[in-house]
Amino acid sequence: MIAMPLETALLIGLLFACGTYLVLQTSFVRMLFGFLILSNAANLLLLAMSGSPEDRVPPIAGAGSGPMVDPLPQALILTAIVIGFGVTAYLVILLYRLFLDQKTTNAAELYAEQDTTERT
């Protein structure tokens, strides 16, 4: 097992902290960016799982001999990015529609008088 580089670990932690902070804000735009940063943090975590790329060749046919970088996390990240792309587009339109319907971009305002029993 190759250790994860320290700076990568710090960066992942920083991204998760920023993402969590932004998701917990009330403004829609900040929440959106929070989710983006969170998904990127998760992707980076996956990438770090293939270990340090030093002295390793890319996992491409004919890229040279020697130990290759573990390609599986990269495949997983590609999948996760594609999924994140679709979900982000959905989230943007959803927040946009919330803004158009409710005339606010502030979640605290939106859920201020939470009447959950029935629609008025």
């Binding site: 998701v23 969170l38 998760a42 975590l45 770090a48 996390p73 959905y90 959803l94 529609r97 919330l98």
Partner: peptide, 23 residues
Amino acid sequence: IKQGFPYVAVNLAGSTLFLCGAG
């Protein structure tokens, strides 16, 4: 839509955690 938004938000966070768990 207002009632459905928490569903989306919470499940998005859940998916991120799932990805971390898989990693």
